[in-house]
Structures are given as structure tokens and as C-alpha cells.
Nucleic acid binder design. Structure first.
Length: 282
DNA sequence: TCCCAGGCGACTG
DNA sequence: CAGTCGCATGGG
């Protein structure tokens, strides 16, 4: 069984990283072992202090997926610029942003709108079971997340069993708009943040918030700062009290928060966002 | 039963 | 343009 020993100067918490809500396809055993599916891999992994023990993927795959090649200390130092974020960082020590599969991340956050995390997890599992390839691993059954063609080649109604609600046509139309996953991923990866953002927002069901999630979680655009209802609440209470706590977030308010965060936390404000989100109350 | 959730697009003024 | 509202679904 492959073992990876983390250097003492590289903070990492498997529980924080997999449990903070950035990914939806991992489950934790009571004994601390995590089971998940990434791409075509079923993976089992656990952490004992500085030691990671895993099966189902290579060392290189694990290092890249969990961003263990990122020197986290300078990133944390750069965002650690006020008492509130400081407390969040302390509470969630070892949290790293995962490098998520891009197409799966796009669909996941498209069907996450106006939903809670248990519901999102159920929807993604349903899409995978319906359209994805079966993976047998250690006596368990997983399903790979389907490529766009596996969805667009079906009738649109095939998605209805996944209970995506009004998001169903968004997923189907986006799958049709991206005939080749790899070509799309490579061309998007080549774009800078603002351009990639405009590109994503041209797809159905992808607005500012979903685009920022995809850019942060799948394209490593650390200057992205997704603003959901939780982040909005935190930013209003602790950073922008003048914004007013009125109901739905307008586009202008979104940009105010996003630009403030970019200025205040700096080029890795996306990391700050994830610590704030993970440390949220409720 | 009600309000809420990792919001968006269509529709107004 | 900027603000308002309907939306499917499930959790608490």
C-alpha cells in the first residue's frame, strides 16, 4: 500500500480538505478512512499525522489532486491579514484547495445553485450512476463522472431521473456545447482569469458565482472569490457593514464583495474564501 | 407548514 | 443598465 510522508513544513489536513464542502464525492468512515472517486479512480485514503496511506492511485496523482506540491505557508501568510481570517485559518489548519476534475466541477456547481450540500451530493451521485462507468474497488461500487458526450448523446429526458429540477436543461445544453472534454479543458486552461470567467458565463446556468467556483476549484485561479449566501453574510458582518443586509444579492453587490476581497486578501483571496467558508457557523 | 440552500435567467422599468 | 421574481428539490 503506497505511503506518502508529508514534510514537517507542509501543513495538510485530509479531514479539513475533504470535509469543507469543496468536493461532493467523498465519504468518511468512522475510523477516519475516506473513500472517493476521482476521474476513473476509486480511491481509499487515510491520514495518520504526517503519513498518508492510500490505494487506487499513484503517488503523483495524490500529490497533484490534493495540491501537496503547493508551498502552503507563503499562501497562508499572504492572506492572514486581519484577526477574523486569522481565526478561520487557525480553525481549519491544513485545509488545501483540491485540483478538481474540470468538467465534473463545472456540472457539480451548475447543479448546486440554490441547494444544500446533501442535495447536491445526491444529484451528482445520481448523474454518475445513470451515465458514468462502473468502477469496482475494494468490494465497493463507484461510478466515474460521465463525459459530456455520455449525457448529450442521450435524450434530454434521460436526465430527469436525477432530479436536477430547473437545472436539468442547463446540464444538457452545456454537455451539447462541449463535444470534446479534453479540448475544452485545455483551451480553457490557457485563458487568464477574467477571460475564462467570461467564457464560462456564456454557458447556460453559469453566472458569476458558479464561474468563480469552477475557476477556483478546477482551474487554480486563486484570485477568484466565489460569493454565496454564507460568504456574503460573513463579508457583510465583518468587512463591509455598509452593504446592507437586504435580500437577494445583486450583481453590483457581488462585484463589490469580489473586488474588496481581491484588494484586501490579495492574489490568493480564493484561499481566504475557502477558509472563511469552512469556518462558517451553521 | 414554513424558511432556507455554494444562484441563474427571464422579465421589467 | 439595475432591480425583481419564478424556479424544482430536499433539509431542518
Amino acid at each position: 500500500m503506497p505511503v506518502l510522508t508529508l514534510p514537517p513544513d507542509q501543513p495538510f489536513s485530509l479531514d479539513q480538505t475533504l470535509g469543507c464542502g469543496q468536493v461532493f464525492r467523498w465519504d468518511r468512515d468512522p475510523d477516519g478512512t475516506w473513500w472517493g472517486v476521482v476521474g476513473s479512480h476509486g480511491i481509499r485514503i487515510r491520514q495518520d499525522n504526517r503519513k498518508l496511506t492510500f490505494e487506487g492511485a499513484s503517488v503523483q496523482f495524490i500529490v497533484e489532486y490534493f495540491s501537496l506540491d503547493v508551498d502552503l505557508e507563503p499562501v497562508i501568510s499572504s492572506i492572514d491579514c486581519d484577526p477574523f481570517i486569522h481565526a478561520a485559518i487557525k480553525k481549519c489548519q491544513g485545509l488545501r484547495l483540491i485540483r478538481q476534475p474540470k468538467w465534473e466541477c463545472l456540472v457539480s456547481y451548475t447543479i448546486a445553485t440554490n441547494s444544500n450540500i446533501p442535495t447536491i451530493r445526491r444529484r451528482i451521485a445520481a448523474v454518475s450512476e445513470k451515465f458514468g462507468q462502473k468502477i469496482a474497488f475494494k468490494g465497493k461500487t463507484f461510478y466515474a463522472f460521465p463525459d459530456p458526450g455520455s449525457i448529450s448523446c442521450e435524450e434530454q429526458g434521460a436526465l430527469s431521473c436525477c432530479k436536477l429540477g430547473y437545472r436539468e436543461p442547463y446540464v444538457f445544453r452545456t454537455a451539447c456545447a462541449i463535444p470534446d472534454r479534453k479540448i475544452w479543458e485545455d483551451s480553457m486552461s490557457a485563458l487568464p482569469y477574467e477571460e475564462a470567467r467570461r467564457e464560462l458565463m456564456g454557458l447556460p446556468g453559469i453566472g458569476p458565482k458558479v464561474a468563480d467556483c469552477i475557476l477556483l476549484f478546477a482551474f487554480q485561479k486563486y484570485e477568484a472569490f466565489p460569493v454565496d449566501v454564507w460568504i456574503r453574510r460573513i463579508m457583510q458582518q465583518h468587512y463591509l457593514p455598509g452593504l446592507g443586509t437586504g435580500s437577494p444579492l445583486t450583481g453590483r453587490q457581488y462585484d463589490t464583495i469580489r473586488c474588496f476581497a481581491r484588494e484586501h486578501f490579495g492574489e490568493f483571496c480564493g484561499y481566504a474564501q475557502e477558509y472563511l467558508y469552512a469556518a462558517r457557523e451553521g
